[in-house]
Design a protein around this nucleic acid. Sequence first.
RNA 1: GGUCGGUUGCCCGAGUGGUUAGGGACCGGUCUGCAAAACCGGGGACAGCGGUUCGAAUCUGCUACCGACCUCCA
Length: 488
Amino acid sequence: MLQIYNTLTRQKEYFRPLHEGHVGMYVCGPTVYGDAHLGHARPAITFDLLYRYFLHLGYKVRYVRNITDVGHLEHDADEGEDKIAKKARLEQLEPMEVVQYYTNRYHHDMEALNVLPPSIEPHASGHIIEQIAFVQRILDHGYAYISNGSVYMDVEKYAKDFPYGKLSGRNLEDIKTDTRELDGQDEKKHSYDFALWKKAAPEHIMHWPSPWSEGFPGWHMECSTMGTKYLGEEFDIHGGGMDLMFPHHEAEIAQSCAALGHDTVHYWMHNNMITIAGKKMGKSYNNFITLGQFFTGEHPLLTKPFSPMTIRFFILMAHYRSTVDFSSEALEAAEKGLARLQEAYNRLMRLTPSPESTVQIGNIREKCEEAMEDDLNSPIVISHLFESAKAINTVADGKGTISAADLKELQDVWKTFVFDILGLRLNDNSDTGSTTAEAYKGAVDLLLNIRLDAKRNKDWTTSDRIRNSLTELGFSIKDTKDGFEWSI
RNA sequence: GGUCGGUUGCCCGAGUGGUUAGGGACCGGUCUGCAAAACCGGGGACAGCGGUUCGAAUCUGCUACCGACCUCCA
């Protein structure tokens, strides 16, 4: 039975869905005002793993991941200029043009990483009406106040009736002493109150009418609104990066409780950060490397380009609640490990069964399932796959045999865990595919068989010519004991 | 300053109180016309000092160091 770590209780809990056979999950998506970097890949892949595992278990999943395209303030001193608007002015583009541009690029990167698209990808800008209604409910319940056209959460009042800070392990007293004094907070009663609706400054481009002012929704409003709109007033899982725990998710809880009178989320899940030289990779440190830069290798810290699957594998090699330290060296190690899996997979699909097994495949399926059920322990799943790769290689080398039943089981386990669950996209040479692909493969095989004949006749000139020419064309040719292997 | 987390072999990275994580690198071997690759095998670790225990990397205390959040951040 699947166990997941619930940030709310700080322990692993058995996952029990609210509605039998169904899972509702909401994950904080990107703010589309810049290219996605390695840090954005972490939650996308982590929750993709969870999503895939739920599907594997047979759940019907509604997976909502938002696009933030309004509302996040650059900083309070800006008095209401949000990130999208600022970027738009700089580039002389329509705000929605910027949104579309980066949304497209985000989708492109996610597809490259083999991250499945969510069931619903709502835009904050498309849910202004719902957000206004949500704010109104909070006002109606008396947990918010209007000040100069803006609406603020009355945290002190809220904290009297609900445990404010329970997710991040804070209490209001701590927050009172720790919150820094920032500029432009004179319209708030307290510095720790947060905006539900912000009146737009005259130069602000993105704004909508509301009962309180021409303005835009507060920073945390969209998630409360869209989460409950699509998943209901109570739903199973809410995920996101650890850095969103406070204030973002704490504010979300407060907003939802204030509006609805009760909690909405059963399991809060948070992925840890990716670090670079021990420091968090993030916008604020300006130390990030975009996914596009990884794919092209165009960054001073990168020794070479890295494929999207290498990035995915690299992230899956660490548990999602641990930090993972990026370095080009670590990525190269991941790349080689992935290639080893690829080799083993290719061999596995070509093995011929024997009456008996001399290699042990063990109960690999159960072991992989156990690892996944223990809070998505992907590194352990991967270690089991490497273990079985040894058995595969032993048989491929002719130093062992495998029975038809064991072979089928192993092939099935690999397909299930490598493709379906870990979501690794390997080159599938065993795939019969199209007639074009068949003809192409047949042609290459033919060439290499001619080379094999040449080798038998010790015609090294012809042999090397074929190998060198194919290498130049981008093929990788490997001689084996009784033949050859090739890939491109 | 407050809250929380981390410190594992050359590097990355799992971990249950007692039995090999795994990957990369390295070393040795096999294969081999050459080359490349591949495959097999190997050594090494639990920040420091105490405590609990028959036994602790794993529980506990202290110390040191690192980091996250407290402000937009995945």
